[in-house]
Design a protein around this nucleic acid. Structure first.
Lengths: 218, 218
DNA sequence: TGCGTTTTGGACCCATCGGTCCTATTCTTC
DNA sequence: GAAGAATAGGACCGATGGGTCCAAAACGCA
């Protein structure tokens, strides 16, 4: 629906509260208040719709690559991270790629209902990543924790998106994305790692690294 | 000042916009509008003050450990991460440890002035971490990027705080903090790593990990 | 063309909120 | 204890915004 598109745009720019119903109407083009309230029970209902709409966009154009059957699992992950960076760059860091981003945060803080909704979006995002990691487990070290790693990725990306928005530049996000790829790469088995996967293309350096595994660290 | 304290509390709970000047007055206890506008030019000015206040708290009780002269650099980092998790746990995930968190995000979205302010807070936080990493560089691999790593840590923590707030549970933050420690640990040289530092205490497993360094990954 | 139904648009209502201003009260100082 | 400054407290104003309601236009149908 035209109204939801318009609302998503203007709310992405100004936030939920800061956007009046009249702003939405103006952005949508041709209608008065009556028209709006003919389609929506309240501004709140519109809010839910916008949230859903944003997630659908995110899922269609971003999350979809996580399931691309033509690519190896870790390549998909790689592509997905690139997609996040590129999308944010396109939007000039004002709007948000993630449906849980600026708008989501703000709305989650308002009603309990919104909060649950945003939480659910987080879960869906995490679940997708987790599924991919699970699929890729033959390539990964034995004891890796798919859920933990998935959450870690979501948190890092979300935080980086947030920083890049506040700073109004993508460079930060870019750098963090590269580090993140490296981190994921550090869970890849050395043996049996197909070429072109994570870590490989992201690392600009060729010194290998190791974590400290045991207590002594020696 | 009493008013700022009160404002910080109630705004941490409800957000900046959602908090009316009268809410602040009520929370502060004993005064009417005139009293408030005697001390503050506007609600906006109060906003700046609250932001500053929150950062001071954050700097005093959290960032301070990054400079503790009694601890080795990487231990300080470790402690700092623990502090973030514990503080958030104490607050029950409603308010925010970070001055750039929920409140900061929301405010950054409003005026350009707030945005610049929050950006500056990010920079100060990042700079502290960067300084510590620089100090710890004898322990770290040669080519590590202090600024990049510092930003990565800030982004991850911020994202994790955000997630834990939306989910209303610390467990998520806890898990991510552990992963983050491991990530930092992966930058530590194997030789010459003193015991008790990062990675050592966070890793529950004793399998060593490596990143894929070169293109082939083989 | 005329009638009835649906859609459109905007005037209006009411609550909220930031901010002003004016009156009490208290506190100080002589 | 009186004069005056400092502070408290709240009535009020104007603007904004969510939501209602009604009139006008458009459309279908005979």
């Amino acid at each position: 629906m035209q109204i939801v598109d318009a609302a998503a745009i203007v709310m992405g720019r100004q936030g939920f509260q800061q956007t009046s119903v009249e702003d939405v109407i103006r952005e949508a083009g041709l209608c008065g208040k009556g028209h709006f309230y003919h389609y929506f029970k309240s501004k709140e209902e519109l809010g839910y719709e916008v949230l859903r709409h944003q997630f659908d966009l995110f899922a269609e154009s971003g999350l979809a690559v996580l399931r691309d059957p033509m690519l190896a699992p870790l390549d998909r992950l790689d592509r997905f991270i690139d997609w996040v960076v590129e999308s944010q760059a396109e939007r000039g860091c004002c709007e948000d790629v993630s449906p849980c981003g600026a708008l989501g945060t703000e709305m989650a803080e308002q009603h309990e209902g919104f909060r649950r909704h945003v939480d659910a979006l987080f879960e869906r995002w995490t679940a997708q990543l987790q599924a991919l990691l699970w699929e890729a487990r033959p390539l990964l070290v034995d004891d890796f924790d798919a859920e933990g790693l998935a959450r870690f990725m979501v948190a890092t990306l979300e935080g980086a998106l947030f920083m890049s928005r506040v700073k109004r530049e993508v460079a930060v996000l870019q750098g963090i994305a590269t580090e993140l790829k490296r981190f994921v790469g550090s869970h890849v088995r050395l043996a049996g790692c197909p070429e072109g996967t994570l870590g490989a293309r992201s690392a600009t350096i060729d010194v290998e690294r190791r974590t400290v595994g045991t207590e002594s660290g020696q």
